[in-house]
Design a protein around this nucleic acid. Structure first.
Length: 989
RNA sequence: GCCCGGAUGGCGGAAUCGGCAGACGCGGCGGACUCAAAAUCCGCUGUCCGAGAGGGCGUGCGGGUUCGAGUCCCGCUCCGGGCACCA
């Protein structure tokens, strides 16, 4: 042993970054070698070790899996992963068999674009990125089962994504049974005649249909179908985009290219069939109200009525509108169809009507025909308006705000309640995709109709009397809307709404709705209807780096599902990964896979069903060249984690039931599924809605046992960071900025502070590696959990980290001699104060862990450790009972140091499955309690009383207090409030 | 525009039921140890008045309910998020 010079002597076994790192590496290696976090399945290939776990409760903890970006992680990324790991580790110590794994959502545009630039195959960069991310995550000490970490790009994974697609394609929604059923059941019903093809869109009986007719009919029922639908077409990227990939100003999020609404033939998923169940089953879930609300709003259920209007001069035609306010039918002064509405051509006359047609106008007002109908016949006006509307990019649509445009079709509708002739317009403020694509316009009581009516000089007839406050506030009269500055959209009392059969006058809005609904139903003019904002899901992309569809087309152009035996359909090798791009909005999509001619054209011997007529003998087909959206792989990965190596099924039924069965501890009804799902709120709608939809289809078809995938959802907050700009407004390196007297400087130059996301462009990135080097991973974990509640966003502040690092150092020093590295834990009895604090801490920490309030759990552990410091200072050693308990309680949060301490205290095995300390109730009871004494609500003294002291005893004790007695001296006590265990309050006057 | 969520010391935050506001940590101030510094340990730290004892004020703003309000109610302000012609 050599003498260390006193000047730079550091204790050999001080808990610093170097020691932390060596401890952390050693334990990460040991967990891996000992398979500590392998969660055994009850059966199948991953069942090894299950017997030892059989008595434990299965618990499935899940993170929203990441996209393996080339940029690597910053400290904000793992916040949720640390949270789930703490919870999972706690649950392992409280009797659970915990499944926790991490995979990768690895298909997607960044890898593809990088490939386009470099010519390198996206699989190469994707795999390199995954490897880097796994390294960074391993260093955090996350207790994942490494066997289950699938990537969506694995052929063995996307083979099952394709298999699920086939299930969906080969299914239809039975509205009577309210569930999806195999498509063969539908065919059987048609063939047996129990379902009438003629009544379901075919027009003629099943037996009279030819092969093609049958295929078209059946295809129209499928849950996955090809349709011509208006989509976000981005010629600059050469692909269609999902709504969330389009910015608020109508450009592509990536590349900033203009986006156009174009009808294109695309794959769709019939999520709308599930709208009602997706809405109703939210009630079964333990999600926050705000997320449920966002889903409810997205689904957008509204109830009202469909009402059919006649068309003047067309006895055979009727236009059905949807309205939530049938009580305002008498106020309908015109009608609007979406420009694409199928009836527009049929009702548009050859000539403009010339005669008088309403009280206000003796000829067509100029505004009605506007720029589109000026000097041309109605059909030409309609055509040019349609072109105008279609040519507008989303950008222009946003820029013009809500200025109303439209054109009169020359046709008139007949209001069924009063026979009024009302003009029919087309306007793009009416959307084909919602309701019936047609509205009755009641400008007096609808903001949009009001704006349109003012623009086009249309009558505004009030039929709901506004409340007096509204009228006086606007300074207008109820019965003359000509002076109104805006529509009255609230509820009120109906007026001017009567015909021979029904009168609404005098009824309040709900009663009027009911009365008119009854009358409409009786007259056969309308039916109560529910509509949804939710649209079917656009499911194809013109990209290379995604799952190919297991679909081919024959020369009819109709899709044919490949048999399961043809899976996986692997991505072909191509030399050019880019879709064809253009700046012409009329250019057509051309996916990269279309250029792989050898792959696209394929000769197969498909044994198609007899009714479809394409079976038998080798024939040439063309493959679907679109790929699936990135959401596809993320829709079901939680199921594959359960049984990642299963080649016979996406998950074995017994394994799925073991992990997913929904049994709440208190026995209340649960939807089942993942016990805890943690991720960012940015997936509040789309991912979570799509996954719920797929899960329900799989449930209907008998492939999973629960109606919902995620029983409990927890949205973690974001770690944000300060960024600094210099005088020119250029971002400077945040790490180099110093604070002096409340201002910030880079060197001597003052800089401005901003607050936002952590990112390269703001030059404020802090990486986990930076923190490991300075403090170690346990410190990083502890800091991220200590900063605040897991569901709140908060700023990263590197200077605050020392607090938690000092805690770990102090804990270490309380149990380990910094010079020798030997533990100084003694089998001495702890004093009563210490034991009471210990058990109070255990009790509180358990509660905080259950509620995922890790920040307060850590605060409790700080207090216990600070007390332990006193004990060690006084006695020279830590009592074993305290030392072991605090180590076990720290273990979920800072597992490496805890394992090391546990080991040094003489335990050869990992503490991962050690029972979490339990509070002894004997130490939780308190016999005396200090309560405040208030006089007129202000604390004037404190008394210590027995915990069971009744109000009278409390009051007596309070009066005995010197200060209180002085204040009560000579005063009249009006009232005394004495709450046992809480306070005493004297009200004096 | 509509719908959610939030606002507590210099900073991050705590306060499960209407009952001691500010736990715990950072930062700051003071002290011990040291030749000195670092590290460590101890004390103080909402704010104003006061030498002190003590007192006033205090949870975004204005009202209210209550013996008592950070917490409940009404009306605002600001910040964050979602939706945005959905009839």
């Amino acid at each position: 042993m050599t003498e260390t010079p006193a000047s730079d002597r550091t204790p050999r076994a001080r808990y610093d970054a170097a020691l932390a790192t060596s401890i952390e590496r050693a334990w990460q290696d040991r967990w891996e070698a000992e398979r500590t976090f392998w969660a055994p399945n009850p059966e199948g290939g991953l069942a090894e070790g299950f017997d030892a776990m059989a008595q434990r409760t299965p618990l499935y903890v899940l993170d929203m899996f990441p996209y393996p970006s080339g940029a690597g992680l910053h400290v904000g990324h793992p916040l949720g992963y640390i949270g789930t790991d703490v919870y999972a580790r706690y649950r392992r110590m409280t009797g659970c068999n915990v499944l926790h794994a991490m995979g990768y959502d690895a298909f997607g545009l960044p890898a593809e674009q990088y490939a386009v630039q470099t010519g390198q195959h996206p699989r190469v960069t994707t795999e390199a990125n995954i490897a880097n991310m796994q390294r960074q995550l391993r260093a955090l000490g996350l207790g994942h089962d490494p066997r289950r970490g699938v990537a969506t790009t694995d052929v063995g994974y996307y083979r099952w994504t394709q298999w699920i697609f086939l299930q969906i394609f080969n299914a239809w929604y039975d509205d009577t049974a309210e569930r999806a059923r195999p498509i063969v059941d539908l065919v059987a019903e048609f063939e047996a005649g129990t379902r009438d093809a003629a009544a379901h869109g075919a027009g003629i009986a099943w037996s009279d249909l030819d092969d093609l007719g049958r295929r078209r009919l059946v295809d129209s029922f499928r849950l996955a179908y090809v349709a011509e639908a208006p989509v976000n077409w981005c010629p600059g990227l050469g692909t269609v985009l999902a709504n969330e990939e389009v910015t608020a100003d109508g450009r592509s999020e990536r590349g900033n290219f203009p986006v156009f609404r174009r009808p294109l033939k695309q794959w769709m998923m019939r999520i709308t069939a599930y709208a009602e169940r997706l809405l109703a089953d939210l009630d079964l879930l333990d999600w926050t109200d705000s997320i449920k609300l966002m889903q409810r709003n997205w689904i957008g259920r509204s109830t009202g009525a469909e009402v059919t209007f006649g068309v003047a001069g067309h006895e055979d035609l009727g236009i059905t509108v949807f309205t939530t306010r049938p009580d305002t039918l008498f106020g309908a002064t015109y009608m609007v169809l979406a420009p694409e509405h199928p009836l527009v051509d049929a009702i548009t006359p050859v000539e403009w009507p010339g005669a008088q047609f309403d009280a206000q106008h003796s000829e067509i007002p100029v505004a009605w025909r506007g720029i589109f109908g000026d000097g041309v016949p109605p059909a030409a006006a309609v055509r040019s308006y349609r072109e105008f509307a279609a040519r507008k990019s989303e950008l222009e649509r946003q820029a013009e705000g809500h200025v109303k445009t439209g054109v009169f079709t020359g046709a008139f509708a007949i209001n069924p309640v009063n026979g009024a002739r009302i003009p029919v317009f087309i306007a793009d403020y009416v959307l084909m995709g919602y309701g019936t694509g047609a509205i009755m316009a009641v400008p007096a009581h609808d903001d949009r109709d009001f704006a349109f009516a003012r623009e086009f000089d249309l009558a505004i007839i009030p039929v709901v009397r506004p409340d007096d406050a509204w009228l006086s506030g606007h300074g207008v009269a109820a019965d003359d809307a000509s002076e109104w500055s805006e529509a009255f959209t609230g509820v009120g009392v109906a007026m001017g709404s009567a015909n021979e059969g029904v009168t609404l006058d005098g009824l309040d809005t709900p009663a009027a709705k009911a009365a008119i609904a009854e009358w409409l139903a009786a007259e056969g003019l309308g039916t109560p209807t529910t509509t949804f904002k939710l649209r079917d899901w656009l499911f194809s992309r013109q990209r290379y780096w995604g799952e190919p569809f297991p679909i081919v087309f024959d020369d009819t152009g109709l899709p044919i599902a490949l048999p399961e035996s043809a899976l996986p359909v692997e991505l072909p090798e191509v030399s050019d990964f880019a879709p064809r791009t253009s700046d012409d909005p009329d250019a057509l999509p051309e996916p990269p896979l279309a250029r792989a001619e050898d792959w696209v054209e394929v000769t197969l011997d498909l044994a198609g069903p007899a009714w479809a007529g394409y079976g038998g003998g080798p024939r040439t087909f063309r493959r679907e060249v679109n790929t699936m959206p990135q959401w596809a792989g993320s829709c079901w990965y939680y199921l594959r984690y359960l049984d990642p190596e299963n080649d016979d099924a996406l998950v074995a039924a017994g394994v799925e039931r073991y992990w997913m069965d929904g049994v709440r501890a208190d026995g209340s009804p649960a939807a089942g599924g993942v016990d805890l799902y943690v991720g960012g709120v940015e997936h509040a709608v789309l991912h979570l809605l799509y996954a719920r939809f797929w899960h329900k289809v799989l449930f209907d078809l008998g492939h999973v046992s629960t109606v919902e995938p995620f029983q409990r959802l927890f949205n973690q907050g974001y770690i944000q960071a300060y960024a600094y700009t210099d005088q020119r407004g250029v971002y400077v390196e945040a790490a180099d900025v110093v604070e002096r007297d409340g201002a910030w400087f880079l060197g001597d130059e003052p800089v401005n502070r901003e607050y936002g996301k952590m990112g390269k462009s703001l030059r404020n990135v802090v990486t986990p590696d930076d923190i490991y080097t300075e403090y170690g991973a346990d410190t990083l974990r502890l800091y991220e959990m200590f900063m605040g509640p897991l569901d709140a966003s908060r700023p990263w502040n590197t200077t605050d980290i020392v607090g938690v690092h000092r805690f770990l150092q102090r804990l270490w020093r309380n149990l380990v001699d910094e010079d020798s590295g030997e533990v100084h834990v003694a089998d001495l009895p702890a004093d009563d104060d210490t034991l009471r604090l210990l058990h109070r801490t255990i009790d509180a920490v358990r509660g905080d862990m259950e509620g995922m309030s890790f920040n307060t759990a850590i605060a409790r552990l700080f207090e216990l450790n600070n007390h332990l410091t006193q004990v060690v200072a006084a006695t020279g050693a830590a009592p074993r009972v305290v030392a072991e308990a605090i180590t076990l309680m720290v273990a979920p949060l800072a597992p490496h140091i805890a394992e090391e301490l546990w080991s040094r205290m003489g335990h050869p095995a990992s503490l991962a499955y050690e029972p979490f300390p339990a509070a002894d109730p004997a130490f939780l009871v308190v016999d005396a309690v200090e309560v405040p004494v208030q006089v007129n609500g202000k604390v004037r003294g404190r008394i210590t009383v027995p915990v069971e002291a009744d109000p009278a005893a409390l009051e007596a004790a309070a009066r005995a207090d010197e200060r209180v007695a002085a204040l009560l001296e000579g005063a009249t006590v009006r009232k005394v409030i004495a709450v046992p265990g809480r306070l005493v309050n004297f009200v004096i006057g």
